[in-house]
């Protein structure tokens, strides 16, 4: 007889979550780093990364996830992403004379560095989106429990 856990869902869900969360996180990171050859890798990847944490939170309950990734940390990450994005954009202004100028060179197709600064922008965007979505989820879902 397995005891009913105190927080979160039952053991089947927890086990499946334990096995899949890492894979989901990895998939999100893959989309982010692959995004410069698709359109908008940053947004989709960021959403998937945030989903992996939300998945964990649904299965195990709030406290366990907030220990790993608290709201303050995620807000900070989002802000860092935004600041990185703007810094890269303004660096273009100083090096090439244009905002968003690609001072990295466009690179060759099918090589490792093939789209200039796009991967860096994608990483910054994924930080903003992932952290933002996670924070929004936490604040919306646990809105009333915070009040009490």
């Amino acid at each position: 007889m397995i005891e009913e856990p105190k927080t979160g869902m039952n053991i089947i869900v927890k086990t499946v979550t334990r096995l899949t969360t890492g894979l989901i996180l990895l998939f999100g990171i893959y989309i982010v780093f692959h995004g410069h050859i698709l359109s908008e890798g940053g947004f989709a990847g960021g959403v998937v990364i945030a989903l992996s944490f939300i998945h964990l939170m649904l299965a195990y309950g709030r406290e366990i996830v907030l220990k790993k990734m608290s709201e303050k940390v995620s807000e900070l990450l989002g802000n860092i992403g935004a600041v990185i994005f703007i810094i890269i954009a303004v660096l273009g202004l100083f090096t090439g004379g244009y905002l968003f100028f690609d001072f990295f060179g466009k690179g060759k197709p099918f090589n490792l560095f093939s789209a200039g600064l796009m991967p860096l922008y994608n990483i910054a965007i994924s930080l903003i989106v992932g952290a933002g979505l996670f924070t929004v989820f936490v604040t919306l879902v646990f809105f009333r429990s915070e009040k009490k």
Partner: peptide, 24 residues
């Protein structure tokens, strides 16, 4: 259009979040 629609989806997400939080 696909890139533009992705942008529009992001904006739609932000709008939905704000509307939901206001209604809560």
């Amino acid at each position: 259009p696909q890139a533009l629609v992705l942008t529009a989806i992001v904006i739609g997400l932000a709008i939905t979040i704000i509307l939901v939080s206001i209604s809560i």
